[in-house]
């Protein structure tokens, strides 16, 4: 087996200074293998979002160790300088709302990422279309995001997260706006993609419908994670 896609030990995040300081994360440990889909659940204010932001290299943790794709990224401080490049190449994001760029069509919304990574336009578009077809939205490739249904938009968002083949995808409540049918469908897709591209996917959710589908769950409470086995039910 390869190195874990995500390896986090004792990760902590403190907001503020002195008396006003708040420890959002007190000590997080998690290890996720490539191709694995894990759920991250917890009540509001438990530190889910903070953890996700730390994993996404958007905010800087204050202590602990973090390695992404086998590369140490944080060890009491950032280990690499180009966080933007790290995000672009190694991390895919799927948000609660799809957040597609409204003035780009579906293909270009996805192709933008490989383009930013320096791929030629044609190559980038080919990758995007390929992925869209894999996600059964190939027929909407030229549509504007506003013309898509919620489910379609979310699938496009997933495609965008996956297009650079990142070792890690962070999905923040990806099913929140969807009904159970569509929500399960999204999970199916995530599972399929994780398997297909050997991507580790963390799904932050408190959607009861999809929690049973995870094989492994990290429950977060008061800034600490507790690993649980999930039901692993087929979606």
């Amino acid at each position: 087996m390869d190195a874990p896609a995500i390896e986090v030990r004792g990760l902590g995040k403190r907001y503020g200074e002195g008396d006003a300081a708040v420890d959002a994360l007190k000590g997080v440990d998690m290890t996720i293998a490539p191709g694995e889909v894990v759920g991250l659940i917890g009540p509001s204010g438990s530190g889910k979002s903070t953890l996700l932001k730390c994993l996404g290299a958007v905010i800087e943790p204050t202590k602990g160790f973090m390695a992404l794709g086998g590369v140490p990224v944080f060890d009491g401080g950032w280990k690499i300088r180009d966080l933007r490049g790290l995000r672009r190449d190694s991390i895919g994001f799927v948000f609660q709302a799809p957040y597609l760029i409204p003035f780009l069509d579906v293909t270009d919304n996805i192709a933008l990422l490989p383009m930013l990574a320096g791929k030629p336009n044609r190559e980038a578009r080919r990758m995007a279309v390929e992925l869209l077809e894999a996600l059964d939205v190939g027929h909407r490739a030229k549509a504007s995001p506003a013309e898509l249904s919620g489910g379609e938009q979310q699938r496009v968002a997933i495609a965008r997260a996956l297009v650079n083949r990142p070792p890690i995808v962070l999905a923040d409540e990806p099913t929140a706006p969807l009904d159970s049918e569509r929500a399960l469908n999204v999970v199916r897709i995530l599972n399929r993609m994780a398997e297909q591209y050997r991507t580790a996917i963390i799904v932050v959710t408190h959607d009861e419908k999809i929690i049973p589908t995870f094989r492994r769950i990290y429950r977060i409470r008061d800034g600490r994670t507790y690993e649980e086995a999930g039901e692993g039910r087929a979606a």
């Binding site: 996404g56 958007v58 995000r87 994001f93 957040y99 760029i101 930013l116």
Partner: peptide, 16 residues
């Protein structure tokens, strides 16, 4: 702002 945040998140350079 939202789109800009997304663009930044997915790694768009400030220059762009």
């Amino acid at each position: 702002v939202r789109e800009l945040a997304v663009l930044k998140l997915i790694g768009t350079r400030n220059r762009t």
